[in-house]
């Protein structure tokens, strides 16, 4: 396996949706290729960061305004 061969499968690999044989190929390649190891690790970390810190709560005042608008519309 070469670097470009694994690039397209990395998300499936990280999401656990790749066949075991392909996973093993990727892991063999990554063990020998420093750049690809960095790409896999930082791609995984990128996803983790957004999953952990990417969520923005709706501000309380915006929530209040939403409820106010919906109540208003509901009675019409």
């Amino acid at each position: 396996m070469q670097c470009k061969d694994m690039l397209g499968s990395l998300s499936d690999y990280l999401d656990g949706e790749l066949e075991a044989q392909w996973c093993a190929e990727i892991e063999r390649h990554v063990a020998e290729c420093g750049n690809c190891r960095v790409v896999v690790d930082t791609l995984q970390k990128t996803v983790l960061l957004y999953r952990t810190y990417g969520h923005e709560e709706i501000p309380e005042d915006a929530k209040d305004r939403l409820y106010a608008v919906l109540n208003l519309k509901a009675v019409r």
Partner: peptide
Amino acid sequence: APRQFTDWT
């Protein structure tokens, strides 16, 4: 194709 290979993990 990746162009950044800094390990910041």
